[in-house]
Design a protein around this nucleic acid. Structure first.
Lengths: 338, 338
DNA sequence: CTGAAAGCGCTTACAG
DNA sequence: CTGAAAGCGCTTACAG
């Protein structure tokens, strides 16, 4: 690998000068500068970024720890974040949940000396979160939040759950199934809380056999949909805790020969792009105009560029907490009144 | 940031010993080892990866330069690659096409001293490809290939184009529209070649007003679908050069009140997961059982672990070229015989 | 088994 | 404007 020393030798100057034309070109005389530039080109020189970040204070890199790309919601937000950050001159190191534990990611992230971190897959009581706060570098939680005071941008999920549930109640549904991932994740916990509250307010009791908290992916959701519809008294509507699962359920329901919405209504959360597709037409609650990923990146970069704060006790730092209002998009999948 | 020196001080040993418990734990006496381990924990020490990679020969990191996540095909393959690599103990640095030019990526990748590179978005005559070959580190092209001799894994796209076209011809179609991205990309070029050939073999001429090479994303495809169907003599079938575009077209066609397949047939390439969804049922040619992303990662890691070759002239290196046979999945979107 | 020392490739005061 | 030198945090022969 060609180093700045090689360039210096060819250009007939010192290694320091080579470094200067890279970092502060005006400070070197034009003719030496061109000599160095030519030598670089001739040798196809690329500065070693590891060496640079070892000495520099900023890596101009942020880390994104994202939920799995199998969920289109995370594919969309990853795209948003990476694109936005690139526009601001930051490189994004992307990690995905399935690669290993949050802990491993944190280790890596810490080792790479990134300028900031965005995390979309913390658990509500995640023990590694403390570690994140103690790193002392800017971070933003995104989509999911931690129980303790923290920086985050997320939807008002409880409101979203209520909104969706009341819509189904309005359409005459009483036997509503609810498929969710584990409630140790804020998104799932809060959406469920909204559902429960809306049911209670309508003085309806929740049929426990219609509720499942172990549907963590599309396949599980499909199996459960199948089971639900085999019940002696099947639900008339199914809420899935995200659109990815809801769309998978739709597939299962149609495969069973059921018609949506006349035999079962179906609804999800997030309002991913596909939900509004003419062939899908899934009722969902979310915010497509509000670019959550971008917003997270924007605030993170603002924190980075504001520099370290003067507070001696970091726990006194004010938090950035952005909770945005959900919007209900009623589509064909719930358009049948019973 | 706490360094190994700090740990050494607390543990009462030299920095070298701290390094040893990290890299070669058996070589240090158990009691000193625990002392060091405790000190690390107490200080929440994480080795600086930049420093490590500066001196180590392997970073256990590969780079992936992927097409945009807006196309689900790339989301799927990124997921495959990252997961597979993690299973083999490699970290993946992911770059997306939209972040900047291939050149910038290459620079970054080079600077980070990754052990290998997977690229899914080279152009057929990409000038930066030479740079990639000259890096002298293992690489794999994936999905798209370069015109010159190179390592790649890709579908036999010309065969795929032929397969799909003949199917439509069998169904009685003569006025087939073809929506594609620019032919400076191997995938597009070859699929088109397969189409043209199949048409020629059937002694049919291609109606030029039905062919577009400027549909590079879903939105463009939708606009073109709209235009096509306004023609005095609209096509009876539309081929989109990938499923992402085809599914977007489906949306547009349904929005126009057209029925698929009875008024227009529709087909795509890649056979992404959604294509087989009951609500979509898109005919497509691809290979879902063959995990192309995984395969690329597997071969790349094999090359990395085989170590540098002894050949003096790298251009004499044998290439790994995997071209897999496409399979046609006939679904509802083309099931109407005219 | 462990320490002192060299070196990975850079940046950045410090002199001149 | 430019060079010599220190140092970023690590790993790894080399002695002992």
């Amino acid at each position: 690998m060609v180093s700045s020393k090689d360039v210096a030798k060819l250009a007939g100057c010192s290694q320091a000068t080579v470094s200067r034309v890279l970092n502060n070109p005006e400070s070197v005389r034009p003719d030496t500068r061109t000599k160095v530039l030519n030598a670089m080109k001739a040798l196809n020189y690329q500065p070693n970024l590891a060496a640079r970040s070892l000495v520099a204070r900023s890596t101009r890199t942020i880390a994104l720890v994202s939920g799995t790309l199998k969920n289109n919601f995370f594919a969309q937000s990853t795209d948003q974040i990476v694109t936005y950050a690139a526009g601001r001159g930051y490189k994004t190191m992307v990690y995905f949940e399935n690669e290993g534990s949050l802990e491993e990611m944190m280790t890596a992230v810490q080792g790479y000396k990134v300028d900031g971190i965005i995390v979309s897959c913390v658990k509500l009581d995640d023990p590694h979160f403390t570690q994140l706060e103690q790193l002392g570098i800017p971070y933003m939680l995104f989509n999911r939040r931690h129980r303790s005071a923290c920086n985050y941008v997320a939807m008002d999920n409880e409101a979203a759950g209520g909104l969706l549930t009341r819509h189904l109640l309005d359409m005459g549904h009483r036997d509503i199934a609810y498929l969710s991932g584990p409630p140790d994740i804020s998104t799932f916990y809060e959406r469920w809380a909204g559902f429960e509250k809306a049911m209670a307010e309508a003085r309806l009791s929740v049929r426990q056999e219609l509720v499942h908290f172990n549907a963590s992916d599309a396949l599980e959701a499909q199996k459960l949909a199948w089971k639900l519809m085999q019940l002696a008294s099947p639900p008339t509507a199914i809420i899935c805790v995200n659109d990815e699962m809801a769309i998978a359920c739709l597939d299962a329901l149609l495969s069973m020969g059921l018609s949506v919405p006349s035999q079962v209504a179906l609804a999800g959360f997030d309002d991913i792009g596909l939900a509004s597709h003419q062939a899908i037409q899934l009722t969902s609650v979310g915010q497509h105009k509000f670019r959550m990923g971008e917003m997270a990146a924007e605030h993170l970069i603002a924190m980075i560029e504001a520099g370290p704060s003067d507070r001696t006790r970091p726990q006194d730092e004010p938090r950035i907490q952005i909770k945005f209002k959900p919007e209900l998009f009623v589509r064909r999948s719930t358009s049948y009144k019973i």
